[in-house]
Nucleic acid binder design. Structure first.
Length: 156
DNA sequence: GGTGAGCGG
């Protein structure tokens, strides 16, 4: 379909006098329209699935539910200094949720640990390592005033 | 007891 349109346009251009070309293009004789793209979204409407920017914190998923935090640290320590490694467990049942977080001392180490552990096996399960999503330490400013009606923000 | 995509405390 596009070929037919292009061929027709080419034939028309070759048959048309030079004066007609000006009606189609003001500058370049071969460009029909300036690309109006690269302005809209890239087709992804799920911001949660997007990759996070590099940081020292790594999100590790696909873990075996019996894998403890020590095993996680042990596996990731061969790529850098692990400052913190924890497997997320349910607070009430204490059972592992199958994912965890690994924090390195530097982003360089985190990068090495990410590419070094992503897709690797750990306790028989293929794990996935990626940069952890930047989440606010403090809860989002829902209500800046406390029950007394005063501003309760006295820290940084 | 133990699910199999996900972003904790």
């Amino acid at each position: 379909m596009a070929l037919r349109v292009a061929a027709t346009a080419v034939m028309a251009a070759r048959a048309a006098p030079r004066g007609m070309m000006r009606l189609f293009s003001t500058t370049s004789p071969n460009s029909f329209m300036p690309p109006p793209i690269a302005a809209m979204g890239n087709g992804e409407g799920t911001p949660g699935r997007e990759q996070a920017p590099p940081s020292t914190n790594l999100f590790v998923s696909g873990l075996n539910k019996r894998t403890p935090s020590e095993k996680l640290r042990e596996a990731f320590s061969q790529f850098g200094q692990v400052v913190d490694a924890r497997v997320v467990t349910d607070r009430v049942t204490g059972y592992s949720k199958g994912f965890g977080f690994v924090r390195y001392a530097s982003i360089e180490e985190a990068e090495k640990g990410r590419v070094g552990m992503d897709g690797k096996f750990l306790d028989g399960w293929v794990i996935f390592a990626e940069y952890a999503r930047p989440r606010p330490e403090r809860p989002p400013p829902q209500n800046m005033t406390n029950s007394n009606g005063y501003n309760s923000y006295a820290r940084e």
